[in-house]
Simulated scan of single mutants.
Amino acid sequence: MSVRTHLGPHLSAAEADPAGLSDEAYVELLGADGEELDALAAIADGVRREAVGDQLTFVANRNLDTAVVRDPDHADALVDEAWALGATEVCVQGPLPADVPDRAPLDLVALVTGRLPLHLHAFRPAEVADAAARLRLSPREFLIAAREAGLGSVPGTAARILDDDVRALLTDGTDIPAARWIELVTTAHEVGLRSTATMVYGHVETPAEQVAHLRALAAIQDRTGGFTEFIAMPLMPEAHPAGGFPDVERQRGRQADRPRETRALHAVARLLLHGRIAHVQAAWPKLGPELTTAVLRGGADDAGGLLLDGALDPAAGAEAGRQLTLVQVEALAADLGRTPRQRTTVYGDPPPERMAVLRA
């Protein structure tokens, strides 16, 4: 691709060897705008096509709140409803209530997987550490016990930016250190559990710190091969624990630049992670329709989860009320010129009978 701009050499290099650029080159590409950004997105889209073809994948899933462990009968009803709606995955994120018994982490696994053959996606790194402490086990021992009880995979969320200064600023010092996050995710992979890989962006971090974060994920993948997909999520202002940001004016500028930054980041992630993490997900609940479509045209290939709400407890989970329908996925795929494909959590094909339930 011939683009006569100051990023032209980096774009040409990315087209020839997507994962072979220097950190400095990726940092410069993160600043792409206008014609350069369009060219970067087109190159990333070509890399996406080479890596995974022209499919738009999605998973039929449902979020449950960790508080369900307090009410097994209600949990049974929610799991039954998820199954009846066509879900293949149940996702549980968030800390366990402080007042539940020490055995609650394994009880939670049994409540979901002991009832129906659903894939349970649960226990972020900090929650792995908490569960292990409750059970007086090492994280490795807990993860093995949870896997044997039926846990299918762990969310690689709460990664934010893998830089301790940034993490401390964003969570008022309550986040686990970056090295601990890496250790716990790596341990999950080592015991046979896959995970997502994530980044929360658009706050106080620099482009260089974004590239360093992607490099850290790539290094983990080189060691374990455990990541299923990469998901970049913009930080929502209401998520800051202090109710605001240390530099309000800077954040306003960052919000205004979000569409450009989002497109550039997804494209650079596709390039840098090429040959390591095959799938890049568009986090549609946080991006909205227009940006979701834009990143799917610029390196992303997966639409993520449908987030089936159901009727019994539609308020469960941080993404309550945000549901993607099968009709919407199929319309999006048609607009992109791709074939929609329902997948499992680890990108296999669901049993035909489960696909039929979702389409009924």
Rank of each mutant, 00 (worst) to 15 (best):
V3C: 14
T174F: 04
R49M: 02
F58K: 04
N63C: 12
A218Q: 10
T171R: 11
V200F: 14
F58L: 01
P105W: 13
T66P: 15
L308G: 13
M355K: 15
P117L: 12
E261K: 13
A208L: 00
A122I: 05
D99F: 12
L287Y: 01
A122Q: 10
F58W: 11
H266N: 04
A282L: 06
A283D: 02
L170E: 13
A218R: 14
L312P: 07
S195D: 10
E209H: 00
A158T: 06
L332Y: 01
E319P: 07
L307F: 15
P155T: 03
A132H: 05
L64D: 09
G321M: 07
P139W: 00
D45Q: 11
I43Y: 00
G31R: 08
G288E: 05
R140Q: 13
R354L: 14
H274P: 05
G288N: 06
G20C: 05
V47Q: 01
R49G: 04
G86M: 12
L308I: 11
G31E: 00
S138P: 01
F142C: 00
L170Y: 08
T345M: 09
Q210N: 12
E28C: 02
L21Q: 05
P246R: 10
A110W: 11
G34H: 03
S195P: 07
R322Y: 13
T187P: 02
V69R: 09
T224W: 10
D172K: 10
G173Q: 11
I277F: 02
V100I: 05
A77C: 07
R250E: 00
L291Q: 07
A133S: 07
T57P: 01
R359W: 08
G253E: 11
T113K: 04
A133M: 08
H10A: 14
H279P: 05
I176D: 14
T88E: 12
A278H: 06
H203A: 15
S2C: 14
F123D: 03
S12V: 13
E261I: 02
E205C: 00
A311C: 13
V59Q: 11
A178V: 10
D54N: 14
Q55V: 14
R136Q: 15
A19Y: 08
A212C: 11
T157W: 06
